[in-house]
Amino acid sequence: MSWESFWYMGGYAAYVWPAYGVTALVLAANLVWPVWQRKQLFRQLAIKQKRAQSK
């Protein structure tokens, strides 16, 4: 099977690939979001701690 016919998906490319795309986006978002939020939180806490120490 060629790549071309693989991407063509028997004529259903317009349905199959968006379905996989949406799934990838949603699942990735639920993984990346908490990790990113945690980094933000750590940064905030570190700043707070520094302030508390310098007082």
Partner: peptide
């Protein structure tokens, strides 16, 4: 046809 492949997600 190939539309059924959506089943895998």
């Amino acid at each position: 046809g190939d539309s059924y492949r959506i089943i895998y997600i």
